[in-house]
């Protein structure tokens, strides 16, 4: 009897262990525009909204461009804004919290903490063509697509989620998924 109970608990632990380690893989199909600029795949649902632990992310400016072009972060994250360029740059965003970090020369750094979710367009008021996006999510589960549109989100606890995609130009269908068995693979199409 005791051995039966031990075996059951052991099997349950293995199962739970598996469930805790569920990985969502997939591909976003968006053609050339998706190759050029990455999309963010993120999950919304009734999980605990823990902040994804990550090092202080960096948004640099080099050769008249923001790098990276798209930066997903969780609410509460502080981003470091650098200037590795030969000319002075400015950083401001007209969205949501509407900040302007001023202008500064090569080598100096500014920081900003994002407290509200949303898409923050990053602009430089002396070089109008410069544009990038910091996407602040209230979800700890997200990934940037690679050049083939593939993504991978690890460590998903079991539950019901909606998979959504953000892209600066394209729109995608959202998908409802249930995480209950190991490893799920999905395909996300355009609207």
């Amino acid at each position: 009897m005791i051995s039966k109970i031990i075996v059951t608990i052991f099997s349950l632990l293995i199962l739970l262990g598996n469930l805790e380690a569920v990985t969502l893989k997939g591909v976003v199909e968006g053609g050339k525009k998706l190759k050029k600029n990455q999309a963010i795949v993120y999950l919304t649902g009734s999980f605990k909204s823990e902040v994804k632990s990550q090092k202080q992310p960096i948004l640099d400016q080099q050769n008249m461009a923001f790098k990276p072009h798209v930066l997903p972060i969780s609410i509460g994250t502080t981003v470091a804004f650098l200037n590795s360029d030969e000319v002075r740059h400015n950083v401001y965003s007209p969205d949501k919290e509407q900040y302007n970090l001023g202008s500064w020369p090569k080598g100096e750094k500014k920081t900003y903490e994002f407290k509200q979710k949303g898409v923050y367009t990053q602009l430089c008021n002396v070089h109008p063509e410069m544009e990038s996006f910091i996407v602040v999510l209230d979800s700890p589960y997200y990934d940037l697509t690679d050049k083939k549109g593939r993504f991978e989100i690890k460590g998903l606890p079991p539950g019901n989620y909606t998979v959504r995609v953000w892209h600066e130009k394209l729109r995608f269908k959202k998908q409802k998924i249930i995480i209950g068995k190991p490893d799920l693979e999905i395909v996300i199409n355009r609207k």
């Binding site: 050769n63 008249m64 000319v87 002396v126 070089h127 109008p128 063509e129 410069m130």
Partner: peptide, 11 residues
């Protein structure tokens, strides 16, 4: 300042 400035394609 704005109309006589650098752009990416001049790099």
């Amino acid at each position: 300042n704005c109309h006589m400035n650098w752009s990416q394609d001049m790099m």
